[in-house]
């Protein structure tokens, strides 16, 4: 068990927990948080492999992931607010308009 193995397990675990959360939680904000977990898991994996290979490309990819995550969080939360304003609930299972 060296450092790389542990962080890879950490990353994979975060990915798994995040996906589970996205699939089973109803609260839209918690779903957004779970997406952050997924992205963190991916980032950790990127950086671990960057460490293993001694190549900075992984870190660069990670910083772009962070940028995208920031944008995603901002837009996602704005959507939550917009939805909440229209319909005072943020439970995802009350919205099935994608059907139409």
């Amino acid at each position: 068990m060296n450092l790389d193995t542990i962080t890879l397990i950490f990353g994979t675990g975060l990915f798994f927990i995040g996906i589970t959360g996205v699939l089973i939680r109803r609260n839209a904000i918690v779903v957004l948080m779970c997406i952050e977990l997924i992205l963190n898991g991916v980032n950790l994996t990127f950086i671990t492999f960057s460490h293993i290979h001694g190549n900075l490309a992984g870190q660069v990819a990670a910083i772009f992931v962070i940028v995208v995550a920031a944008a995603e969080a901002a837009v996602g939360l704005a959507i939550v607010i917009a939805v909440f304003r229209r319909h005072p609930s943020i439970n995802i299972d009350e919205f099935n308009v994608l059907k139409w």
Binding site: L23, I92, D93, N96, L98, K99
Partner: peptide, 11 residues
């Protein structure tokens, strides 16, 4: 199949 729930689609 078309439940309209995002999470079903995610699954």
């Amino acid at each position: 199949w078309q439940t309209g729930f995002v999470q079903n689609y995610a699954l």
